[in-house]
Structures are given as C-alpha cells and as structure tokens.
C-alpha cells in the first residue's frame, strides 16, 4: 500500500515479478551465463546507485528477500509471477511456475501465479496446461515467443498450434495472455520483435486479454498502433518504468504516447523484479509529473486517478480482484513474519 501525503491509500499490484535462479550452478551452458549477465546490465544501467545489487545476489536471491523487497519495503500489495522457463539454458529452469508456486504458498493472498505454455510442445503441452490450471488455478500465462526449443528458435502467436492453446485457455478460464517480445535470439530475416502476430490473435480471441510486456519496446510505435485497433490489448510497463529515474523526459514522452494511443485503463505497472525494485520505481512514479510543454503539446495529464489505475486498479480488473475485500484480507495478513 502506498500512502500519499494527504493520507490516501493506493493499492499496488506489481504485474510482473520473477523468482529466478540464474546462478552458475544452475547454468546449463554459456547462454545461461549470458542471459543473466544481460539482465544484470539492465539492472545496473537503470537502477539508482543505492539500489544496485552485488552480482551473486542478483543471480540468486531467497524468498524472504523477495517478500521483503515487495511487500514490506516496496509498497506492493500483490504481485503477479510471470514465469520464464528457459529450460535450454538452465538445468532446473530459470523461473518456473512450480518454483513460483512454492513462494506463493508461503505468502498466501499476496501472489498470483501465472503459468506458461509453448505451442511447440503439442498435445503433451495442452495436457500440462490443464494440469497447471487444476493445480494452481491460473488466470494467466506468460508467453516467451523467442524461447529456444530444440532446433526451433521461436514461434508466433498466430501459428495454428498457438491457436489451439489459446482455445484451451478460453475453455479453462485463463483470460490473461502476457506476451514477451524480446530480447530475440532468432536469426530470422524478419523482425522478431514484430508485434503483428498479437494483432491477429487479439482479433481472433476477443474474450482474452493480451498484455504486451514492455509495452512492445523496442517497437512501441507498432504496439501503440495495434492497441488502438484491438480493445483487448494492454501494455505492461516493465522496462519502461525505470526510465522514470534515469531519463524522466523520455519516460514522460512514452507515458503520454501510451495515454494518447491506448487509454488509462489499459496500462499496467510492473517492476520486472528482481531487475528493478518496486520501492524506488513507485516513489519516483508517484512524485512524477509530466513536463508542462509535453502536457501542452499532447493535451495529456497524468492525474492521481490515472496513477491509481496504472498502479493497481487495471490489473485488479483483469485478475478479478476486489480491492476493498483484498485490503481487508491483507490487514489480517500474518504471512509476512519472516520477511520483515
């Protein structure tokens, strides 16, 4: 919960967090090392100095650290786990639903566990999706379209097999499809960041919500265009968020573009923890105002109401969370003992 100076309470849902193991012990090959090293560069490049972690902590952190950084120190009321399996790079996977669910058990009512699927798993994968739904009651999946699998270096949302999985999602009530569009590792002659396949899938499945992570960066312009066409396309702010500190002017430009092309109901706050910590992101975001010239030029303002929607209300709507009753539940929450 974030409290404004006037005492108003803002319910915060961090829509994109990870509990990963990128340690050398878990790395399967050079790609595993390069992957976590790249994340660490993201972390070092955009975090304020006081929030830069030592490398070994960044590679692998424990559950108490995570709960503390989010719920005690970081104003977060609830967080959504977005798994990233990367099973070709890491022996036990990088950040799997099963690992995430362990943590969710320790801190009930705090975490939403999302699943993942990979259409290249065929029928077996459909059965696994059913199992995830039965075991964890998942309401969302994270898709990592650039993930390697055998000789395949990626897939598209518009592939016929992906449609089969999306049909299964409809059937199981898994409504939220989080799509990650990069960093790509596919030597295709096309642009692998291209978000056009989201457009097709969103039209074909109007009953599902497609949350494009990193607001389509590095193809923000194409993402914005698609989102104007498809009312069920949303933008997750992971990776865009830390610019609020490092390059506030650019953050202002991006937020105003998003508010112009989408609307305030389709933008979701996300830290991408542990790449960045929610504490400073939220503090800087709450203190942030659009520069006057940008407001004048675009006619866009970033009011407290809009901030509240971005920080929690929009995600709550997608995941069927009643904020008032959830607040009551969390007041009585004793689950944070080990973390504070």
């Amino acid at each position: 919960m974030y409290r404004t100076e006037s005492g108003e309470e803002i319910f915060v849902i961090d829509s994109h967090v990870h509990y990963w193991d990128g340690s050398p012990e878990n790395q399967e090959n050079i790609h595993g090392k390069q992957f976590i090293d790249c994340f660490y560069d993201y972390h070092r490049n955009l975090s304020p100095e006081d929030y830069v972690w030592p490398k070994d902590k960044f590679e692998k952190y424990d559950s108490q650290t995570m709960a503390h950084d989010l719920f005690v120190k970081g104003y977060v009321d609830m967080a959504i786990f977005q798994p990233t399996y990367l099973s070709e790079f890491y022996k036990n996977g990088f950040n799997t639903t099963e690992q995430n669910a362990e943590l969710a058990k320790l801190y009930p009512d705090r975490f939403i566990v999302n699943g993942a699927f990979d259409p290249r798993d065929g029928e077996r994968g459909l059965a696994y999706l059913e199992q995830l739904s039965e075991t964890y009651g998942i309401k969302g999946v994270k898709l990592y379209t650039a993930e390697w699998k055998g000789s395949s270096k990626g897939y598209k949302l518009s592939d016929p097999m992906t449609y089969k999985y999306l049909e299964k999602c409809c059937e199981l009530g898994i409504q939220n499809i989080h799509v990650h569009k990069g960093p790509t590792i596919t030597p295709l002659n096309r642009d692998a960041f291209d978000v056009a396949d989201v457009d097709e899938a969103a039209s074909a499945f109007p009953e599902l919500n497609f949350i494009v992570e990193h607001v389509g960066l590095p193809r923000l312009e194409d993402f914005c265009w698609i989102a104007t066409q498809e009312p069920n396309v949303y933008g997750g702010l992971a990776v865009a968020m830390p610019f609020v500190h490092a390059r506030p002017r650019y953050f202002a430009t991006i937020i105003s573009e998003l508010l112009y092309w989408l609307d305030e109901d389709r933008i979701l706050f996300a830290s991408d923890y542990a790449i960045w910590e929610p504490k400073w992101l939220i503090e800087k975001f709450m203190a942030f105002e659009l520069p006057e010239d940008i407001q004048e030029e675009t006619g866009i303002t970033l009011t407290l109401d809009i901030k509240k929607k971005i920080l929690g209300e929009n995600a709550a709507r997608l995941y069927g969370i009643d904020i008032d009753s959830q607040k009551e539940k969390l007041k009585a929450d004793a689950g944070l003992k080990g973390a504070s």
């Binding site: 590095p218 312009e221 914005c224 610019f243 650019y250 573009e257 092309w261």
Partner: peptide, 12 residues
C-alpha cells in the same frame, strides 16, 4: 510515435 520509439531505443 515512430520517432519517439526509435529515440527511446537509441538511449536504451
């Protein structure tokens, strides 16, 4: 929209 996206990528 296109310019902002390209410039943002460049700083990133």
């Amino acid at each position: 929209r296109t310019r902002v996206s390209m410039e943002f990528n460049a700083i990133h």
